[in-house]
Amino acid sequence: MTQLPQTTERKLGLVIDLDTCVGCHACVVSCKGWNTENYGAPLSDQEPYGEDPSGTFLNRVHSYEVTPAEPDATAKLIHFPKSCLHCEDAPCVTVCPTGASYKRVEDGIVLVNESDCIGCGLCAWACPYGARELDAKEKVMKKCTLCVDRIYNENLPEEDREPACVRTCPANARHFGDFADPESNVSKLTAERGGMDLMPEMGTKPVNKYLPPRPRDAAPDMDVLTPLLKPVATEAKGFVGWLDKALSTLPGGKN
């Protein structure tokens, strides 16, 4: 049924730490590896070794450059993994005409029942985050399942009962837990580090939270007397100084 539940008993989701993500794409690979051979249709590739390779991924890592407004601050590079945010008010679910898309009452996971999916693509249109991809081979909508076939799987050792992306992350930048429980690891991390929503203005109420990068440490002064030291010359001297002056007098040469 494509009506959303009023509330869910648990709110399972991820915390992604943009401060510690190193952009290694291990989560992308482990996600594709697990999900292509477990829940639902495999994640196909088109021309994987050809001229124009493409394929279905449930998790993709972007990289962004952020230039602070302060004039002498340096730009930062931030790696940004993106997958389904398992929104509380998921627009992808309500637009589905067949009831294939649904949000689970017991844990809030948003799933697709692939045998009901007609591949119309409207749910992907409704998702602002690009979390859903129509598989070019299977013609059904694929999305992150939060590894629903791992987290409850009693055939796996207990330490493996978390999403493949979380299990594999070498930087420990991904955390899995229940946001409905204020004492859970993810709730605490979100509270401590100011976990944020993506596109809050869309009103989707994402469950997954992103931890902003911490401010960079400033290099400390070497000594209390450092500010009193003679500043390093900023004016050019000698031949270069003459050249600078001479060129500056030419029309258009001032700056």
Binding site: H62, Y64, V66, A69, A73, I78, M196, M199
Partner: peptide
């Protein structure tokens, strides 16, 4: 707003 990084400065893909 899409990345939540807008408060830090100008964001470029």
């Amino acid at each position: 707003t899409a990345t939540g990084l807008g408060t830090m400065g100008r964001v470029k893909a």
